[in-house]
């Protein structure tokens, strides 16, 4: 069982819901990322999505785009992200999901990435701009090194596509809360409930929902519906606003705890 599957089994056993935190690795610098992840974990994050910065992040909104630019400027490469993951793994057993665009992966080599990621203690991978229909080689490489593959389902996904996403996802399925790119929103879209219901009919895999979730009340709203929520841009924005602030880690920990409180007693 991977750390990701283990996490969801434990959450279920304990009747709890999970909080998945996204960070762009290397933002503001590669050295800083392990400490930021520790802060998230202290605050109650259950799983870390480690974003690989990319020059042309078409699925991301401006907040994560800017984080990617900072990380690239600080010299972050895919190889560097693996090093960062290794550093985190030396200190913690928190599940790590690599979040990346396809081109850096192609350049690095699919098999080489799967092998090196597994060796660094990464537990799974989410390839944001590869369609599940064309991902056979990738799925094979990841699974042969014991890594989970997480795919996304969106409100626009057809029934046929939901089936494919469910079949090739392991660990959990990532439900996109609305059409569009990553980024905070005031309120959640009504599209998520029918999407989750459709997916529940297809698969017994844990379901996480992301895109636009940034407040404890969003977490509260989704707690009854899914097994975990993903928060990204809200963390990244907090980092952006406190780049030179020595209390950044403390703030990150506090905000994580606040989000987790959204679940109320269920957390």
């Amino acid at each position: 069982m991977t750390r990701i599957a283990g996490l969801f089994a434990r959450l279920k056993r304990e009747g709890r819901k999970g909080l998945i935190a996204y960070l762009t690795a290397g933002d503001p610098s590669p050295d800083r990322t392990p400490a930021l992840v520790e802060a998230l974990e202290r605050g109650g994050a259950d799983l870390i999505e480690l974003g690989v910065p990319f020059s042309d992040p078409i699925a991301d909104g401006p907040v994560i785009q800017r984080a990617g630019e900072r990380a690239l400027k600080a010299g972050t490469t895919l190889a560097k992200v693996l090093e960062i993951a290794g550093e985190i793994r030396r200190r913690s057993e928190i599940p790590l999901l690599l979040f990346t665009y396809l081109n850096p992966v192609m350049r690095y080599g699919l098999d080489r990435l799967a092998k090196d990621a597994a060796a660094c203690g990464i537990d799974g991978c989410l390839l944001i701009d590869a369609s599940v229909e064309e991902a056979h080689e990738y799925i094979g490489a990841m699974h042969s090194h014991g890594l989970d593959t997480v795919f996304l389902a969106a409100p626009t996904s057809t029934e046929r596509r939901l089936q494919l996403v469910a079949r090739y996802s392991t660990g959990f399925v990532y439900m996109v809360s609305r059409t569009g790119v990553t980024g905070e929103r005031d309120s959640l879209s009504g599209a998520i409930t029918p999407l989750v219901q459709s997916m529940r009919r297809i698969t017994g895999l844990p379901l996480a929902v992301g895109f636009g979730i940034s407040r404890p009340e969003h977490v509260a709203e989704l707690g009854g519906l899914v097994d975990a929520v993903v928060v990204g841009s809200a963390f990244v924005r907090l980092i952006e606003r406190n780049l030179d602030n020595p209390s950044l880690e403390i703030q990150l920990e506090a905000f994580t705890r606040e989000l987790k409180h959204g679940y109320g007693a269920a957390a």
Binding site: F54, S55, D56, I58, L72, T77, L78, A79, Y101, L102, N103, P104, V105, M106, R107, Y108, D129
Partner: peptide
């Protein structure tokens, strides 16, 4: 070199790390 950008797989100018 071959690569993926904006939904297409084709020949693309990129650095050694796959950044466009």
């Amino acid at each position: 070199a071959p690569g993926v950008l904006q939904g297409a797989y084709s020949f693309v100018l990129q650095d050694a790390h796959g950044q466009i």
